[in-house]
């Protein structure tokens, strides 16, 4: 059974973190901390040298992870290892297509099968997805659809026709970690999407605090939120003190679990 098919009906929390950040061994501790709070979904970012859809914070985390020479195989091993102690949280990988292509699509799927419930391929649009989607479907891994404010309804209808897992609604036109949130527009678009699909619609990009999470919950019909950059930002705020970082992560996740 795919965990993404058993998500709660409301207030879904999805947390993103870059694999291998700040180092491979510290990364395990970061993920242990996150998973101990049993978020509904965890998104594992695989570091890429040229993350063109990510903002400065996630870029920096990728760069730091790559500096300690983490490989795709090491990231996948880490994810598999974490899976053993985590039964409740749905596992999702978020990465760029070149990482998967270079690993070999078949090999990659073989590695993540029975570990990962879904995958977000940031730079694989609907038009190019067919062959990969078929392979993922066969292995019960959901290809998560991103929808942006630029996606018109005609297009989102096509995109969501066979969508599974959840919809990742990009709440601001921009890169991950962007600033402005316009709740009225978000709600309008979320409502339109909910008419087109039965799977949960999650709002991501620009959600930074408990206040943002509460506001999304109160002002929109979104089924949940995705938080990424804000989790990583703390590390830099705390001048890269790892012990303090873990404590602050704990506090932050408790706050945003509403």
């Amino acid at each position: 059974m795919n965990k993404l098919d058993q998500l709660p009906s409301k207030k879904i929390l999805s947390l993103f973190m870059t694999c291998g950040f700040p180092t491979l061994s510290q990364s395990k501790k970061v993920f242990d901390e996150i998973l101990s709070h049993q978020p509904d979904i965890i998104e594992f970012g695989l570091p890429f040298s040229d993350p063109m859809a990510d903002g400065p914070i996630i870029q920096e985390s990728s760069k730091i992870a790559l500096k300690s020479k983490i490989t795709t195989k090491q990231s996948l091993n880490l994810i598999a290892q974490l899976k053993k102690n985590s039964q409740k949280t749905a596992f999702v990988i978020m990465c760029y297509l070149n990482t998967v292509q270079k690993f070999g699509v078949q090999n990659f799927i073989k590695e993540i099968k029975n570990v990962v419930d879904g995958i977000i391929l940031v730079d694989l649009p609907f038009e190019e997805e067919k062959s990969i989607k078929n392979l993922l479907d066969k292995n019960n891994i959901h290809l998560i659809k991103l929808i942006s404010p630029m996606t018109d309804q005609k297009r989102s209808k096509r995109l969501l026709k066979e969508a599974k897992g959840f919809v990742y609604y990009i709440s601001a036109t921009g890169i991950t970690g962007s600033n402005k949130l316009d709740y009225k527009e978000i709600n309008k678009n979320v409502l339109a999407l909910k008419k087109q699909t039965k799977i949960p619609v999650l709002v991501g990009f620009g959600i930074k605090s408990k206040k943002d999470v509460m506001a999304i919950s109160k002002n929109t019909k979104a089924d949940g939120v995705i938080i990424g950059s804000a989790l990583i930002q703390k590390y830099f705020d705390l001048k890269m003190n790892f012990t303090k970082y873990i404590i602050s992560l704990r506090k932050f996740i408790k706050e945003v679990k509403i």
Partner: peptide, 19 residues
């Protein structure tokens, strides 16, 4: 679809696709 044989294509995030 912008393919020169196998090469080319459009590998961008959904935000850019409509553009």
């Amino acid at each position: 679809l912008g393919r020169f044989g196998d090469y080319g294509g459009m590998y961008v995030s959904e935000t850019l696709m409509p553009l």
